[in-house]
């Protein structure tokens, strides 16, 4: 099986604006993500927070992959799709609406909120802004959502539906999402671009390769180090300590509050950053029963 290449990366979390930052300690009192700095204020006025950050992330990842140049698409838009992972994205719009209806009838609602009531709003806005006419969907699948999104994007690249998929994982922090998860939410996320291996044209070289994806019941048996591999060469990305065999390096990425649907995408971007920093071999990301294995570029599979 020809592995799918990860060709573009982006991160937007408080205090972190590049993948490498995911390998470093979280800065104290970091500044919140401000999408307007990167993509400007134009067109953001009626967008919810998750959509704004999502657009910022997609722009940065597509640019990093070489698919966007100065905001212009450099490959056919109908061969590029979007998968978003977000569990909490439009929760505040939905809850505010029901509160307003109870107090003021529907006359108190803003018509501008209508598109935001759809769970697919981040994905469809990303398509509209950048002209991406390939498959467009949102994965809302709990803790494993981000890794599931990477898996589905990889499947659509392999099946030939698209040449490139941008995968965005994003969650907003607000009173509704805080109450729902019982604590602060990351208020940011990450994005990556998956491309067909060997794709020529504007695309940059692979930063990581996507190997197998799996799904088990959450908190299933911890994966063991595969027989015949050298201890210490496989990175584990998980916030579930049971999944880290003794002696293996690991990253829990727990410094930003609840990452929820963004977690899996942040994990994959961190793995690519680890490879770029000289970490050799393999990375295993595990979240909520979903698992994805990534290989360093040039890795013989």
């Amino acid at each position: 099986m020809n592995p799918v290449a990860m060709t573009g990366l982006s991160v937007a979390l408080p205090g972190v604006d590049r993948p490498r930052g995911l390998l470093e300690p979280v800065a104290p009192d970091p500044a919140p993500v401000d999408p307007a700095v990167l993509i400007g204020k134009k067109g953001l006025r009626y967008k919810d927070r998750a959509t704004r950050i999502g657009l910022h992330l997609a722009f940065a990842a597509l640019t990093d992959a070489g698919l966007l140049d100065d905001g212009r698409l450099r490959a056919p838009g109908d061969r590029i799709g979007v998968v978003v992972s977000s569990n909490l994205g439009n929760a505040d719009t939905v809850c505010r609406a029901v509160e307003t209806i109870a107090k003021e009838t529907t006359s108190g609602l803003s018509p501008m909120d209508t598109p935001n009531a759809s769970s697919n709003i981040i994905a469809s806005e990303t398509a509209i802004r950048f002209g991406l006419r390939g498959p467009n969907l949102t994965v809302c699948n709990g803790a494993g959502s981000g890794l599931d999104a990477v898996r589905w994007a990889g499947l659509m690249v392999r099946s030939g539906r698209v040449d490139h998929m941008v995968v965005v994982g994003v969650e907003p922090d607000n009173p509704v999402t805080r109450r729902l998860v019982g604590g602060p939410v990351a208020d940011g996320g990450a994005a990556l671009v998956l491309s067909r291996s060997g794709e020529t044209g504007p695309v940059r070289p692979a930063k990581a390769l996507l190997a197998a994806g799996t799904r088990t019941a959450p908190s299933g048996t911890a994966p063991r180090r595969p027989a015949g591999t050298t201890p210490g060469t496989a990175l584990r990305l998980t916030d579930e300590p049971d999944h880290v065999p003794p002696g293996e390096p690991s990253l829990d990425l727990a410094g930003w509050g609840e990452l929820s649907g963004a977690l899996g995408v942040v994990q994959c971007v961190a793995a690519a950053a680890w490879f770029a920093a000289g970490g050799a071999g393999t990375a295993h990301a595990v979240a909520g029963g979903a698992g994805v294995t990534l290989l360093a570029p040039g890795h013989a599979s």
């Binding site: 759809s118 994965v139 799904r215």
Partner: peptide, 9 residues
Amino acid sequence: VDTHTFAGA
């Protein structure tokens, strides 16, 4: 266990 929820409008 291999279950997926998609919200595609």
